[in-house]
Simulated assay, not measured.
Amino acid sequence: MPDRDNCFKLLLPQAETPIVVYQNGRATSGMQRLDQVAVLPGSFNPLHAGHRRLKAVAEEKLGRQVVFELSIANAEKPSLNVADVRQRLRQFHDDSIAVTQAPLFQQKASLFPGCCFVVGFDTARRVLDPRFYDNDVLKLRDCLQLFRESGHSFLVAGRVNHRGDFCGVEELSVPNEFQAMFVGIAATDFREDVSSTRLRREHGEAADG
C-alpha cells in the first residue's frame, strides 16, 4: 500500500526478503554487495547530526560505504509499529537505510556477511553483555568466535560519561583473544555528546512549553 505521507511505498522485511533497503525514498529488496558495506545500527529516535558525523568518519576510516540499519524488533523494547517505521524513515533522504527484523547482533551478522558494525560505546558494551546470551558467558564467547570466523568486526565510537570522562574501546570488557575485533575511534576524530534520549526530552519540553 502506498505510503502517501512519505511519498514512497512502505515495504517491511519478510522471511523471503529479510532486508529492505531504502535509497532516495525508494525501497529495494537489498543491496548489490552487502559484504562490501559497513553497518551503523540504531533506533534513530531521532536521527541527529552525531549519527551523520559518525557515518562520515567511519566511511573515511574504513574506506567503504556505511549503511544505517533500523531493526523493527528490539531486544529490550516493544517492536516498532508501522507508524513508528514511517516516522523513522521520514528522517532519511540521501542516506541508505536497511530495515530488518534483527534485534541481536548475531542475527544482524547473518544478514550482513563479513561487515564491520559501526557502534557507539554503549552498544558495544551490550554486544559483550552476557544478558543478551541467556546470561551464559560460554554462549557469548561462542558468538564472538563466530563473528571472528565470519570476518565481522566492530568500530567503536566513545562517549563522555556522567563524570565528564571519555569512555573508549579500552574501557570495554573484551576477552583478550577477541580484542582485535573491536577498534576504537579516537576522541580527536569523533566525539559527540548529544544523545537521542536528551534530544527527545528537550523536544518534549519545548512542545509542552
Rank of each mutant, 00 (worst) to 15 (best):
A98H: 06
T123Y: 05
E60R: 15
V21E: 00
V119E: 00
S195H: 02
D94P: 04
I19V: 15
P46T: 00
M181Y: 02
T188L: 14
A109V: 13
N161S: 12
R198C: 06
R125S: 15
F190T: 03
L12C: 07
S71Y: 12
F117G: 07
A73V: 04
S196Q: 10
T188M: 08
I97D: 01
G120Q: 03
N45L: 01
R141H: 14
L144W: 08
E59W: 06
M181C: 15
R4S: 03
V20P: 06
R141M: 11
A207L: 13
G114V: 07
P41Q: 05
N45F: 02
M181I: 11
R163Y: 14
F132K: 07
D129I: 12
G63Y: 10
S150W: 08
M1W: 13
H48C: 09
P103Q: 06
F154W: 01
G164T: 00
L89E: 04
Y133N: 07
T17F: 12
R201M: 10
P18G: 06
D94F: 11
V20K: 00
D134K: 12
S96I: 08
R148A: 15
D142H: 12
E60F: 07
R53W: 12
K61Y: 05
F121A: 04
S79C: 10
A186N: 08
P130M: 02
P130E: 13
D142R: 14
N6M: 09
D129P: 02
P46H: 03
H51K: 09
S153T: 05
K77V: 12
R201H: 11
F105R: 11
L12V: 05
L144E: 10
L104N: 07
E171G: 03
N6Q: 09
R141C: 07
T188G: 07
P130V: 03
L11V: 15
F44K: 04
E149K: 12
P175Q: 04
L80W: 05
